[in-house]
């Protein structure tokens, strides 16, 4: 098996003395060729720092990183010749047109002007931006900008594409279009690494997931494995003014019960007796659904807000 990206016991801290914080605390993982690998975790978990280390933009304190058979950070610049990056923060060139953005970026890879120009139509077609080559960046919608950023990450025909929260801030239509493009890239055999907060996105796109929290890798596996391994198969959500008072009365039917605000979450392997018991109560709404990745994520990382 050939790992496109490999972390071995990677540590990274920022600050000195009293203010020293260890942001990544011994992460080991491997992204295999052809996979779409999802990197999940709450804000401040160490995702972005890990990506920056993978790209060689900040050095680990200890541990080893290899990307596309290059030692990182020593050979990171060379490794990046075959990597595409879609950053979290939009950094297209606002002064340039759509086509100029792609041409200028292509030249950073040592490409000739002619080659850079010749591949613009193909990239725009992939991004669904055909006919927009002369549009100003400021005229584009959020979804179009993100698609252009993905096209920009493809100028060097990369083997490995890193996407940091590719659909944050987009409306559902735009998100679906991005998902469709990412699936197309996977179908072409590209290896993808993406970070996301959206569990539906991770469940849909990723072959393999790693959950990181407080700098530690706390779970790894396929979405299905993680759901089966970590959590009960059924979830019953109960909405109402005083759901907390129901907790004791239905606890016999559930393995785990959590109350968050006006919602009660009951995790169970036997949903039928639970929903029957709940049907006796008035003034509540009940939703029975299969467990999903979001439940796994909440169970692993807790319900508290992370800022």
């Amino acid at each position: 098996m050939s790992a496109v990206l490999e972390f071995k016991d990677v540590h990274k801290s920022f600050g000195k003395g009293e203010a020293k914080r260890e942001v990544v605390r011994g992460v080991s993982l491997a992204v295999e060729s052809g996979q779409c690998f999802g990197f999940l975790g709450p804000n401040g978990a160490g995702k972005t720092t890990s990506l920056k280390m993978a790209l060689g933009q900040t050095s680990p304190d200890s541990g080893t990183i290899r990307m596309l058979n290059h030692a990182i950070p020593a050979e990171a610049r060379i490794a990046r010749e075959k990597v595409g990056v879609v950053p979290q923060m939009d950094n297209l060139d606002p002064d340039f047109t759509v086509a100029e953005n792609l041409i200028v970026y292509s030249r950073y890879f040592g490409m000739s002007d002619a080659k850079a120009k010749s591949q613009v139509p193909m990239l725009l077609e992939f991004a669904g931006l055909t006919g927009r080559e002369n549009a100003n960046i400021r005229e584009l919608s959020g979804g179009m900008k993100r698609r252009l950023t993905i096209a920009r990450a493809l100028v060097n025909d990369p083997d490995f594409i890193v996407l940091d929260e590719p659909t944050t801030g987009l409306d559902p239509q735009a998100r679906h279009l991005i998902w469709d493009r990412l699936k197309a890239l996977r179908a072409r055999g590209k290896t993808l690494l993406l970070t996301t907060h959206f569990m539906d996105e991770a469940e849909r796109l990723c072959d393999r997931l790693a959950v990181i929290d407080a700098g530690l890798l706390i779970a790894e596996g396929s979405p299905r494995e993680l759901i089966e391994k970590t959590i009960e198969p059924d979830v019953v959500e109960v909405f109402g003014d005083d759901v907390a008072s129901l907790k004791d009365r239905v606890s016999a039917f559930a393995t785990r019960i959590e109350v968050a605000g006006e919602t009660l979450f009951a995790y169970t392997t036997t949903p039928k007796p639970l929903t029957e018991a709940l049907s006796q109560f008035a003034g509540i709404r009940v939703l029975h659904r299969p467990a999903n990745l979001e439940d796994v994520f909440i169970k692993l990382t807790g319900r508290e807000l992370r800022d």
């Binding site: 790209l55 933009q57 610049r77 060379i78 990046r80 010749e81 990597v83 990056v85 950053p87 923060m89 950094n91 297209l92 060139d93 970026y105 950073y108 890879f109 040592g110 920009r152 060097n156």
Partner: peptide, 8 residues
């Protein structure tokens, strides 16, 4: 940031 994501 965009430039140093390329081989620069």
């Amino acid at each position: 940031d965009a430039i140093i994501n390329a081989p620069m």
